[in-house]
């Protein structure tokens, strides 16, 4: 039984690595399709033909495709994404600079979204069949159907420009630069700048856990043991919170792991609206500015995070739900 889980996890890990390798390969060929010259960023009156050739050689663009591919894979394994065309500096450095900002924004928003979602889901389930439930569902669907940037801009107009309660862009006030991540996280200024983007993102993200929690609750409440509990005289409140909510939480936990991965990829929009210096904004400006090594690196990191979290979600599920381990053992994964 326990061995089954470990075999399952090992197999799943190999699969994740395979998936990553395929994504890496797709990424390589995708970026070889890029239009424009990688030298676009270099153009000035001053460039001679030889200098251009030297640059092409410097970035290894003159070598045959398969050599470029192997070099690329080799470098990737060592965590080397090459130099950014635009910043003339290692891509890894650029990404490590902004990755924390993306993680803070994503994790905080998800945390808030899942708290609201779980509580809201239980609440709606307890009001099943009422207009409150219907209204709650419609509101939640509205938050998921409205374009994020549109909501973000309207919130900006209200809270930043009309009421002037909150700052509108970046992670810090004029003149403030954080020397370390700890200093950043302990600064009130930083959290003030976090508020608006976090709220906008959480507004969008809370729908999934809320609807999930609600339907899980309804399902659990339908089980025989709940009916038995009712007959045995347990209070509705006890059954709701202690029994049903607990059992309905499992899928939410795994959904959370998946959610982190997906929202990191989807943060592109929010980061652009609020000028948040994160991975998504870096990716967009790298693509728009033909900085292919940087765009490729940012893309790859997002993909790694997603694959990793998908893996964790599966493992978590298999550990929490014993049926998975045994069934996979039976099928000899």
């Amino acid at each position: 039984m326990r061995r089954g889980i470990w075999i399952y996890i090992g197999g799943r890990l190999l699969q994740s690595l395979l998936v990553l390798w395929i994504i890496t390969t797709i990424l390589f060929f995708l970026f070889r399709q890029a239009p424009g010259s990688p030298l676009a960023a270099y153009i000035d009156t001053t460039f001679t033909e030889e200098q251009q050739q030297a640059l092409i050689a410097r970035f290894g663009l003159d070598k045959p495709m398969h050599i470029q591919y192997l070099t690329y894979l080799g470098n990737l394994i060592q965590g080397d994404f090459g130099d950014s065309f635009r910043y003339r500096a290692p891509v890894t450095e650029q990404i490590m600079d902004v990755l924390p900002n993306t993680l803070y924004l994503t994790l905080t928003s998800l945390f808030i979204a899942y708290i609201i979602g779980v509580v809201g889901g239980v609440f709606l389930a307890s009001r099943r069949g009422t207009t409150v439930e219907k209204g709650g569902i419609i509101f939640t669907l509205m938050t998921r159907a409205a374009p994020q940037f549109w909501v973000g801009m309207i919130l900006l107009a209200i809270f930043a420009f009309e009421l002037r309660w909150l700052p509108s862009s970046g992670t810090s006030s004029p003149g403030v630069i954080y020397r370390s991540e700890i200093q950043k996280l302990t600064s009130i200024d930083f959290w003030e700048h976090m508020l608006l983007p976090t709220f906008t993102l959480a507004l969008f993200l809370h729908g999934l856990p809320l609807l999930l929690m609600r339907s899980n609750m309804l399902e659990v409440l339908d089980q025989d043991y709940i009916t038995m509990g009712r007959l045995a005289g347990y209070s509705e409140r006890f059954l709701m919170l202690r029994v049903a909510a607990r059992n309905a939480l499992l899928p939410i936990v795994t959904a959370l792991a998946l959610g982190i991965g997906y929202s990191i990829g989807g943060n592109v929009i929010i980061e652009n609206v609020f000028a948040w210096p994160g991975l998504g904004r870096m990716l967009v400006s790298a693509v728009a500015g033909s900085d292919y090594p940087l765009a490729q690196g940012a893309f790859f990191i997002i993909a790694v995070i997603i694959v990793l979290l998908n893996f964790l979600a599966d493992v978590l599920y298999s550990v929490l739900d014993p049926r998975v381990g045994s069934s996979s053992q039976a099928q000899g994964v």
Partner: peptide, 14 residues
């Protein structure tokens, strides 16, 4: 799985 691993919006933008 591969399709699940590719970030959706960034992929479309690229």
């Amino acid at each position: 799985d591969v399709a699940f691993g590719i970030p959706f919006l960034p992929f479309i933008i690229v």
